[in-house]
Design a protein around this nucleic acid. Sequence first.
DNA 1: GAGCACTGC
Length: 658
Amino acid sequence: MLGRTDDRPTQALADHAGCLPIAEVRDELLRLIKMHDTTILVGETGSGKSTQLPQFILQSGMARGGCIAVTQPRRVAAISVAGRVAQEMHVTLGVQVGYSVRFDDTSCARTRIRYLTDGMLVREALADGDLKRYKVIILDEAHERTLSTDILFGIVKRLQACRRQDLKVVVMSATLDAAKFADFFGAGRVLHLLGRQYPVELLYLPEPVDSYVDAVLKAVLQIHAHQPPGDILAFLTGQEEIEALQRLIPERAGHMHASGDSGQATLVPVPIFAALPPEQQAKVFEAAPPGCRKVILATNIAETSITVPGVRYVVDPGFVKARSYSARTGGDSLQVVPVSKAQARQRSGRAGREGPGKAFRLYKEETFQALPAASAPEIQRVSLALLMLQLKQLGIEQPQDFDFMDRPSTSAMLRALELLLALGALGAEGALTPLGRHMVRLPVEPVFAKVLLAGAQLGCSQEALSVVALSSTDPIYIANRGMQDSAAQAWKPFMSALGDHITKLNIYSSFLEVRKADRRRWCTEHHLNFRSLKKAVDIRAQLAEHLKQLKVPMASCGSDMAPLRQALLSGLFINAAVLLPDNTYRLQASSQKVMIHPSSVLHGRKPPCIIFEELLRTTRSYARNVTVIEASWLPETAPMYFCSKSTATAAPLREGWQ
DNA sequence: GAGCACTGC
């Protein structure tokens, strides 16, 4: 079986490594898994662990009477690995081997190996606390430490305590910090697998640089001038830098040709980042024309999500744009920060997929040594309201006492619990209320779950569904450099003086009125993101189905937007702010000063009272996605926040759910 | 008068 299983990287590798390394340790691996409840498996890229191990376990009979779950952090991985395994086993995808991701479940009662996104398995655990159908749970790519994987760590550990001998867990990771996993699970042994990676030569700069963008440009030109053929993958932090280098590289490279360096191949820059339309993303997979060398200018999307073929050189300036959340202010910020050692290794590894490569790290070797081993796990960087709600649903009365691999800060947990209390999801004694149990069923942040349920009570569930679905997708606006004016013109007919939510609702309604076949073109004409709007349609349908199951009444408020704005206030009241004489706003909950973000339709309009979705800290604190409300609505919607705390009573909306 | 990395339910 193993001889013909490998369709990955190259033929040359088969000669190089013989067969998949995992095949050699198959029996040893199965013996260990049989012997221990939990096994830690460290496998480098290309070790075959994701495809082979589940098949070994299935053949061994260990999953008899049940199913094997294999989690992945990303949808594409779950889908593509399932497809490959079905092919190897000569079975139909969706029968013995299947996958389950949001909006797409290709599995059935007969499925024995089930690939899922980690978020999907968390959802299953929320519905069926015992995960009874699974005899084996494999947590793959555990080193990525997504929020969902971290929840699953605690869930499976707890499950094993009550389902003794009946649940095997395998934690698979690509990095060498397996000791931490072994320690957490009390796992007896850690097994290491050889990867199938070609050697990558690491080159550092002797001195630090002033501008990393400039340094990337220089490095690319030097590689082009002095290194043998092979494409270059350069990491940058965002769209703006990528577009700048896309212009500069041909300019400078052209200059080199003009100065007499003839016979040189042409450098072709190819951008890749998530917001790029799919047709343009596809260009990174096309081979460079003869006599050309591709320079892929990428964000960290090329670290894990996308593997570009043909890359032999990696240029890594050592920076990444990362989001961080402050529990103190409740604000988000997006900052350019140094990468971790693990990230730098992941990046340089991209040069060794098809042959020996070189990685140019644009910093000193000492700088690398001083980098943190890994970036902070997601659980320590995000708002924890959803996590705390889910832990309560899992029956963990004191979420602070949950068995975390890395504990989030107490202040972040307390802030989240306070929010849930104010939303009415938790009662005074800290238990889930009926409203909270409804909220946990909805796959959105608790504030938006509250908007949906409040919308139902206020007679505007149709509108609330659309607005919440739109808030759960990527931005729907496309504003390319130099076309802001025409874009603003195209959006004008949809703009509402009531704010961004109702403006987006107008866009969504118009989108739906367009014939399906014409929607893509309509979006292009209106400078709107077709993908985002289409996704909003899918999410809305899923949320509507959940509301139906919860027997929540569906109604429309027609053209009167007041109920919808009140529903938004019911969820977003902690982000209520009033206008000050200097035209800034003061947050009611914390007295912080904020300004309306210039991208908002309300920018410059000075409404006296607003709510907003997100506080973004850049040079200043900006409110993004803003809606106008009446100040008189504040006290009755969230008395806990706007009256004296000692006399606060439950919000009126909560009464209906008690 | 600023600028949005990347996932996921």
